[in-house]
């Protein structure tokens, strides 16, 4: 599902990722961890083409992401659900609209989009806030809306950047079980986190990034 070949990225001459080689098979559940500044977010951004690599190749779902033209990029991004660290919710739209608006791009009819969005919101305990605007939600609620949006269109690959950063332990546990369910249904899940309690909670392949390279690749704890 994901293949990185000699991937490197630098900002203003400062290397963030160096000669990274990695393979994640379809249906895997993988944690990506490491200290702040290790390059976790940069790596995720390159997987959904929000950043271009300085060198190397990025392959996602059989497509070379770093060379895709914009039209194909949009199609690829529909296969990828991204849970952003800063939520990236549309402030001018309600919770429900934030979800249905994305489903619309996937060619889902309005009634079906509404039904599907409601189901996901209900699963995340947010159905009673469907008419609220993001600004009136707490940080945890906003994060759950961001998660709901990524899950609503049942993507083949889920990329989550610190998805539990604003959630309490109970909600974090629920989110993890939700991601496990989705993974069980066949989706590949890559979760970037520095929360070791999250890594401890389920046995999964863990990649430890350090100074821009994969320092460890295997079961947690090392």
């Amino acid at each position: 599902m994901i293949r990185l070949r000699n991937l490197a990225k630098s900002f203003d001459g400062r290397p963030v990722l160096r000669d990274l080689n990695l393979r994640v098979e379809a249906g895997e559940f993988v944690f990506l961890t490491g200290p702040s500044g290790a390059g976790k977010t940069t790596l995720l951004k390159m997987l959904y083409a929000a950043e271009r690599p300085s060198a190397g190749e990025v392959w996602v779902a059989g497509e070379r992401v770093d060379e895709l033209p914009p039209r194909k990029l949009a199609l690829l991004r529909r296969k990828v659900g991204v849970i952003f660290q800063d939520f990236k919710l549309l402030r001018s739209k309600t919770v429900m609209e934030n979800l249905t608006f994305v489903l619309r791009f996937h060619g889902i009819a309005p009634r079906e989009a509404h039904r599907r969005a409601y189901q996901v919101l209900k699963r995340l305990g947010l159905h009673h806030r469907q008419s609220a605007f993001p600004e009136s939600l707490s940080g945890g609620e906003q994060q759950r809306v961001a998660i709901a949006r990524a899950l609503a269109y049942q993507p083949r690959l889920i990329l989550a950047d610190e998805p539990t950063g604003n959630l309490d332990a109970d909600l974090a546990g629920e989110l993890l079980s939700l991601l496990c369910d989705i993974n069980y249904q066949g989706a590949t899940v890559l979760v970037a986190t520095h929360d070791h309690s999250l890594l401890d909670s389920i046995p999964a392949r863990t990649l430890v990034l350090h100074a821009g390279t994969v320092d460890y690749d295997g079961a947690w704890p090392p």
């Binding site: 959904y48 929000a50 914009p70 039209r71 949009a74 199609l75 690829l76 991004r77 529909r78 990828v80 991204v82 952003f84 990236k88 919710l89 549309l90 994305v102 791009f105 996937h106 949006r149």
Partner: peptide, 11 residues
């Protein structure tokens, strides 16, 4: 606009 692009909206 950025969010629309990131969630797969075409140009």
């Amino acid at each position: 606009i950025t969010i629309m692009r990131l969630v797969g909206a075409t140009e």
